[in-house]
Nucleic acid binder design. Structure first.
Lengths: 134, 134, 134, 134
DNA sequence: TTTT
DNA sequence: TTTT
């Protein structure tokens, strides 16, 4: 009965960092600068949220291959709040987005999801006629 | 550079209809009644959008097994505008949502995505310590 | 208990059309071409949804002033399914998005919502100190 | 060219806290427990994100009047990452959602936005006929 | 610590 | 009828 969805558009503050988990899964992370619209409805750069994005597996490969500092992208994913205890015994809380989709917004033609793409169109090759769909 | 996302919460007007494509893919469809909030910000049932939802494969199985008339659900997917020609030669346009996620909102505990779930938590079993995540 | 949200990124197929309702409200409409990602996860132009967008009042003014054919924008709004009876007595159904936010994706610096922007930052000018926010 | 949108469904961990800013704006805050779906696609309560929600003005009044511990709600808003310096000189980062819409998911009929509701339907009273909308 |  |  719960749901968690985030959609962000912003720019990478740096090139992504790539590492691997113990079991070999590729993990690519980066920070997205998402500026807030100001009073006039137009954006300023005075107020910006810097949001950590985490990607895995195929999507991490895509990130590693195509994303670089300064690129404008759309990220879709889930907000996760990590809670951990510092050396001083205090609990801290750090947010990150576990992305499941990345779309370029600034150059040509690319979007990738963290899933196998289903070939929907192929399913219906036989229905190219004049019948209403329902 | 394009993106298409829809999130709806509403009730099934009937039990889903299930069929199969020529190549054997399961397809389950149903109509979601999504009422519009009225002037006071509270909902009436006088104004309602009836939106056709289409699901495939595993998600269609889930829909077939669990969804029934009247249930309250959240649907996430893509808006598709089908365009087809009627017997009178006129073009018509019918909208539908190709769902990739369904979440129950009215009973206990269920959500299903049209993808294999990645075992994110398992990836990090080794990192349960006091280090900050970044 | 219902909810209806759409987020689209695509290009205007033409310049917006502007008109007024009987009571003087400005209405600007246009069609957004939203192409579907193809099998490789990269976009093609073979498959595109053409989606009618409707804006009112201030947002319509913004659309009239800034949007032109070919521009890449993000639109947020609600999906509405209009149902009407044709001359032949048949019922038809046409979808449209009633937008409440438009963001440029292709040039510099603009986003507008169909509401007065609240000056959140001003509310907290007094809290610029070292205290945690909660 | 930036965008920031979050949609969450979860339960209040406590009754909201209400306060006022120096200039008199009402602020209501609460924590939303959003559980993550587990491997089978069904939810467990072992893994939950606890997400701080902030509301202002009219929406804060609504929250104060209607929301109580345990209620299931949908929240729409923006993700903000606050950065502040602790007594130890260390920088911390705390996430919160600045909500602009709240919808009940567990009882009857309510949704409120942080804006004046526009009377769209009234605008078109004169168009209740058999004409296609475009 | 940050992007345009 | 359609955008890049």
């Amino acid at each position: 009965m719960n749901y968690n969805k985030v959609v962000l558009v912003g720019r990478l503050t740096r090139d992504p960092e790539v590492r691997q988990t113990l079991n070999g899964t590729l993990v690519a992370t980066f920070t997205l600068a998402v500026s807030r619209p100001n009073r006039s409805g137009f954006e300023g750069n005075d107020n910006t949220d810097f949001i950590r994005i985490v990607t895995f597996s195929k999507l991490a490969e895509f990130v590693q291959s195509y994303l670089t500092k300064g690129r404008l992208i759309l990220v879709e994913g889930k907000l996760r709040i990590n809670r951990w205890q510092g050396n001083d015994g205090q609990y801290r809380t750090t947010p990150e987005i576990w992305a499941d989709q990345v779309v370029f917004m600034d150059k040509k033609n690319a979007a990738v999801e963290d899933t196998e793409m289903v070939e929907y169109d192929e399913l219906f090759e036989d229905t190219e006629n004049d019948e209403p769909p329902f």
